[in-house]
Design a protein around this nucleic acid. Structure first.
Lengths: 157, 157
DNA sequence: TATTGTTATACTCTATAACTATA
DNA sequence: TATAGTTATAGAGTATAACAATA
């Protein structure tokens, strides 16, 4: 019986986490998609729109829109590609960089706050449990749908 | 350090869970919103669109669309309200009822599959950990934004 | 000929406002 | 006058297809 409780609890937690993140991002004029783009830039440095599209699994057309919006709000800018005149490099502005740095700090602080009060043993058990469930779920999904690989990692902001 | 790992793991799990559910629902012509409506009907029986709108926290106008789509795909139908000629009752069809029953079974099966292999102690620790984190998150959100209450419970399908 | 990005277009999800029928 | 639902309209997010400039 408690298996269902765990899954339900996980789903509830999921929804809260999402709501919290969406609100946090919304206050800065961001959403999940745009933040994902910033995350990639923050980690990998300037990239071509084409590569961004591939990394985010969206169409090149959509990237145009995403970058337009991020430029509008001052997080990134387009710079000419030094070697290919067809292409542009999308690069974080100073504002974009500091926003991402702040996001990392907030994320770590949130993580600490959430587990505050748990014993070391419970912490370890929780971490193992999450890993276990994630592995099982990935396996089940892979078994049910062998065609598409779920190897995609999402950002952790 | 492992606090961040837990949060990241949770986010990754969250994304997988969502992707899995979306695909499952999509195969039946459903999405989260439409399923939420079915869930409410499955639990509370026929309701007025007005009540559905309130329960789901969407506009009455949006409910019209949702019900239209659910009728289109055969999950529900509109029946006249016995006492109020302005209103209609939205009611599950046989197809809708059995779809929801199947969904409950699948949900329980998934829950069991996901925790299979965990010891009783780890199971208990996992459940407690999830509850702990959820409570902490709800408290943090309530403290940060006292205006809106997050008492809304989402369906667990 | 293949690739990068953009213009043009369309589809899904959701909201606000105005209106109709009934209470 | 207030309420239940619908028509009309709009905005965000995302996709496909056709096209321009460059490789």
């Amino acid at each position: 019986m408690s298996a269902t409780q765990i899954l339900d609890g996980l789903i509830e937690l999921t929804n809260l986490l999402q709501a919290d993140q969406d609100r946090e991002l919304g206050a800065m004029g961001l959403n999940q998609t745009r933040t994902h783009a910033l995350w990639i830039l923050h980690h990998g440095g300037p990239v071509m729109q084409r590569d961004l599209a591939e990394a985010m699994q969206v169409t090149p057309r959509h990237i145009t829109t995403i970058v337009d919006e991020l430029i509008e709000s001052g997080f990134v800018l387009r710079v000419p590609h030094p070697a290919d005149r067809r292409a542009v490099l999308v690069s974080l502005t100073e504002k974009g960089t500091s926003a991402m740095e702040a996001m990392v700090v907030d994320h770590q602080k949130l993580a600490g706050d959430l587990v505050e009060g748990l014993s070391t043993e419970h912490l370890a058990a929780l971490q193992q449990g999450i890993a276990h469930v994630t592995t099982r779920l990935a396996a089940l999904m892979a078994a049910a749908h062998p065609e598409d690989d779920v190897t995609q990692a999402r950002d952790g902001s």
